[in-house]
Design a protein around this nucleic acid. Structure first.
Lengths: 166, 166
DNA sequence: AAGCAATCGTTTGATGTCAAACAAATTATT
DNA sequence: AATAATTTGTTTGACATCAAACGATTGCTT
């Protein structure tokens, strides 16, 4: 649905629904770009930062599957990102007692130090990106987005046949 | 900045700015999922559909660089997507007279037929995703997102040193 | 005209993502 | 206890994306 990020006005659509979708996708993409650009300065990818960040704020016993659930990413993706992070010494896979199937994923000292270093910059970026929007406007935006998300979630498993019927 | 798609409320942040960013990114991701799920039923990826769709509504003489600009994607990405589309016979690279450097990218009959087939389903999905939002709310959402996008664009090239100064 | 600079498409290499299949381990059922 | 079902992490294979470098071509400067 990211579809055409082209917000060019030669638009094939003039209806507000479609413009809205484009705007959501495009804005997310710009925000992602800002994040990427920041993380790269610390030799991190966005996916890697996400894991470090999540671990910092969820220091409980966390398995790879847990991480995947939280970051909304498949187990396979987690495996690959953790491989990179572990190679850099930012993260460790620890054996779980009485369970030889899972690992607990934990930040190393180095990993903790790095995420602590990046975090303030990240927070600053977020605030700058939303600069000029007061709390009321933020809440409004969130409320509207939540509605879209709920509606969209209902479409997840729809196939073309159903769609014709609907 | 996709950052944590976890909108779990154990959130390390309680400030509205950050929640807003998370919501934008998360919503875009859900929308993308809906698109993916649709396109897969036609053996297309989102990137491939985006190209077909863009070509349909911009049937002028279009080079690969033009396409990249419109879809906000690097030339390298365009090359790879076009390779796939061309292999499927959905698209053609045509020599440009008096310019041996560029190609014009055009839909084949097959490509045109496919995009015509997918498009109504796509439009339906968009409308369903935004179901319940009237035009006024759409405009409001768009307006807020535009403000975020403008602000965020300003951060694009900021590095950590500048950020400290700012 | 000659030489330098910019542009076009491609390639390479790294990353992330998913779906699907797998082995190993754990849990549930019978 | 034995068997079936589920879960966990990994692998494989396909795709997209980017940055960086490259050759070919075109444009610009002098």
């Amino acid at each position: 649905m990211s579809l055409d990020r082209e917000l060019n006005l030669e638009a094939p659509f003039k209806d507000p629904q479609h413009e809205t979708v484009l705007n959501i996708v495009r804005t997310a993409s710009v925000l992602a770009g800002v994040g990427d650009q920041l993380f790269r300065q610390f030799d991190l990818t966005e996916a890697q930062f996400n894991v470090l960040f999540s671990l910092k704020y969820n220091p409980q016993q966390v398995t790879q599957t847990d991480l995947g659930r939280r970051l909304v990413v498949t187990r396979a993706s987690i495996t690959s990102v953790l491989d990179k992070l572990e190679a850099k010494g930012l993260v460790e896979r620890q054996d779980v007692p009485n369970n030889r199937r899972s690992y607990h994923v934990v930040l190393t000292e180095k990993g903790k130090a790095l995420v602590d270093e990046v975090e303030p910059h990240y927070r600053r970026r977020v605030h700058q990106a939303l600069d000029g929007m007061d709390e009321r406007e933020c809440r409004q935006l969130i409320r509207l987005l939540e509605r879209v998300r709920v509606q969209a979630s209902l479409l997840q498993d729809e196939d073309v046949e159903n769609s014709r019927a609907g």
